[in-house]
Design a protein around this nucleic acid. Structure first.
Lengths: 197, 197, 197, 197
DNA sequence: AATGAATGAGCATTCATTCAT
DNA sequence: TATGAATGAATGCTCATTCAT
């Protein structure tokens, strides 16, 4: 009774169901960019716009704000897992991939800063700890005996610390700082690049 | 002229100029609490309410959102400076005070994460670098030759790293993590407490 | 021409024209349930979902929201007509069937409250008066001379009054109130049940 | 971080706190009109617009949709109470005032139809039963021994029944039907008019 | 003939900021 | 100088309706 009496006129293209997967990917990519530019609190409408879809599509794919961030994180984490599972993977190599995501993806940094503001209703960090564990597992298998970060929580702590160092307006600056941070921790890091990059 | 000057209904007390300073302090204290509970994006109206003043007063003292955060930061930084200038001050001691603020004040952590989100209109981090320098100066004078963090940018980098580690819902948890982070960096830290505390 | 005519991925079954009637019935049944649970303003998407069909099918059968409600009403009215046309039908008996629908079907109540909200764009009550007349005809033929409700508009007025009394969360409560209402009007009502029930 | 960078330009009048009471009254009056025209589900924005205030003002005075309807109802009920408490009040007189509100105020009708749609989140009918009891009390004191509607629930049932009869596009038509309904119930009703009108 | 994704207008709600008193 | 009401833009979210497949 309260809704839209008259759309009509002229509708933009409707590419049919085939577009669904494409739209989902476009939304995640758009979200990644928007997050990088405006932070995790960026308006969802902007993400939809940049993805070139209506707002309804965003809500079809992601029920709420947290789900969008989750999807972006999920991709980041999966890349780290793939790097960790690749033949010949080394700790330094996986850390390089991880570091690349830290410098590239604001959402990934958010993963490491889950708490502080207790119970906001739209908790962006819903599955954060589950994802965090997946990252840890991918790294820990490559941790040799007696490694500096071998103690229980030191590995994820170190990652959080590096993520804290990753600031700066450009990717280059952020990479520079990330590497300086790993150096301060006495940890060797391989090439900073995406998995397969 | 000796008539009642318009009795009015009931005006809220106007304590004159004396109240101004009191209100300012109340606003900063309220902001600190609200930031801790809700994060730096908390509604300004809530800060005014908790301070027990109207919203207009907040705007009289602080032209915009950034100014409020600046004022809170300013107090944090000043405490660190005082700790650094106190007779008998040591690096470990000042770091303890600094660490206390890291665990206590959400705004202080924001100081260390200034960039990333490029040009948001209400930039909370306006004077961030100036404040950052003041912190650095207060610490550097206590840095002995050959200290681990003696190299050019390493001191502030380390602080940013520790701030990245400071997560958790309770102050105790945050302090635990902060100390673990300093330990990973091989840096000794004195008692974690406010200056004069 | 004997080639596979494009295997497709996996098309949902297309049962041909046979399915059309089945779908229409399923939609009306679903609408009846949804209306009872959520009121006449319930989202059409929910009706389609409960009927187990796509939203497009709903629009194929019913051009707009009003048409759905009309179809539900149509069924209600038809049952009353059938009750009225049955051999040996009495006024009390038909009123019993009518009352059953009043207690069961939110849409039927809506029939009796057509106006008030002047020109809403999606007018649920399009054919209301036509349906209303059919109900009246079915009852009036059983109205003996000198009946309490014999005067011109009294019959439908009484029905509207009873429908106003029919509130309550459970069918039992609604039936109790409907019968109390008829009693206040001094009208005898037969068993409250669906036609043929 | 997500809000209004730049209002400015030219602000419409702000009449200051004095306007608060006036605005509240204007909102209730506007709501009454809008409800009459569009029903209880009418957009709140339209109510604010008709009252000549911004949407924020509506939310300042009424936390949610139900509160607006409550306020309108409250006024209706208060008038009935006043009519019932007036010196020389009679049952017929109070019923006349009550009937006037039934013909005038869509919200008042809503009061008598509280249930049906179980637990909608924004329940317009929150305090409905409390208000309902106030109406009943105002009437019952004027109910002589042996009155037709003397039995326990019959009084409010009759009112619900009459409210069910009150349909029609014009006030005159609605009044005509209301009086016919009371006549069918064998109840005498005084002049249909607002209290003091 | 059916599916269900996409569109996008519309309504609810929040809050930064102004300003009469 | 303080109050707190008012404004209204921005954003979240929902759903009627269309249409490629």
């Amino acid at each position: 009774m309260t809704q839209h009496p008259t759309p009509d006129e002229r509708r933009p293209a409707n590419d049919g169901p085939k577009a669904a997967a494409r739209n989902r990917a476009a939304l995640i990519a758009a979200a990644r960019e928007v997050y990088a530019e405006q932070g995790l609190d960026a308006p969802l409408s902007g993400i939809a716009r940049r993805a070139g879809v209506g707002q309804g599509v965003l809500y079809r794919h992601f029920p709420d704000r947290a789900a969008v961030a989750d999807a972006v994180l999920e991709e980041n984490v999966r890349e780290v897992e793939q790097a960790g599972a690749a033949p010949g993977a080394t700790l330094a190599g996986v850390l390089g991939v991880l570091t690349w995501h830290l410098t590239e993806s604001a959402a990934f940094i958010g993963l490491l800063h889950p708490d502080r503001t207790g119970g906001r209703p739209d908790d962006v960090h819903a599955h954060a700890s589950a994802l965090s564990e997946r990252v840890e597992r991918s790294l820990r298998v490559h941790l040799g005996d007696g490694h500096r970060l071998g103690a229980s929580d030191d590995l994820m702590l170190a990652i959080a610390m590096v993520s804290g160092a990753v600031t700066g307006p450009t990717r280059e600056e952020r990479e520079r700082r990330a590497l300086a941070a790993w150096r301060l921790l006495g940890v060797e890091v391989g090439p900073v690049r995406p998995f397969g990059g």
